[in-house]
């Protein structure tokens, strides 16, 4: 691309629209001084004309009516959505709330069961740690078992004290 600002400006104009008489004169003057660029400019201008003349796509005659109908249909659907009754809201919300509650209760139960399990385990460990070794505890079992339970209450003394 030529770096001459004047040519760059003319080129950018030619991309958008046909050059005016004054612009064409300006270009002719420039090309007279730069004949080597003439060929390139002819291609440039021809391409601009070709691109400008590309045929338009076919537009259906009812396009605007279709757009309006679709826009209003979607608008109405959106408005219906906003106007939904509380009954609808509850119908949608209640099953979800019930499922959420069941999940919550189940989760809580599982958590508490685990916590209880942990507590039991801790207690057993504590007892195991503090209790005497089983062999020592059972050493004098027979002797202890054979001891008498001792004298009974002195019934006469109790009667006197009353």
């Amino acid at each position: 691309m030529n770096a001459d600002p004047k040519v760059t400006r003319l080129r950018e104009i030619a991309w958008r629209r046909p050059l005016t008489g004054a612009e064409q004169a300006e270009l002719r003057a420039w090309l007279a001084a730069h004949p080597e660029a003439r060929d390139e400019w002819e291609l440039e201008l021809a391409l601009s004309r070709v691109v400008k003349k590309l045929p338009d796509a076919a537009v259906p005659s009812n396009f605007t009516a279709r757009v309006l109908a679709e826009a209003q249909r979607r608008d109405a659907a959106q408005a219906r959505g906003r106007r939904r009754t509380p009954a609808w809201w509850w119908r949608t919300f209640l099953p979800r709330a019930a499922v959420a509650a069941v999940l919550l209760v189940t989760g809580l139960s599982i958590y508490r069961a685990r916590e209880r399990g942990k507590e039991t385990l801790t207690t057993v460990r504590e007892i195991t740690r503090t209790a005497p070794p089983p062999t020592l505890a059972l050493d004098d079992y027979d002797v202890i078992a054979s001891l008498s339970t001792g004298p009974g209450a002195d019934e006469d003394l109790l009667a006197l004290m009353q």
């Binding site: 396009f63 757009v67 679709e70 826009a71």
Partner: peptide, 9 residues
């Protein structure tokens, strides 16, 4: 059509 409907919305 979608372009114009989006513009409308």
């Amino acid at each position: 059509q979608n372009v114009f409907v989006q513009a409308y919305k």
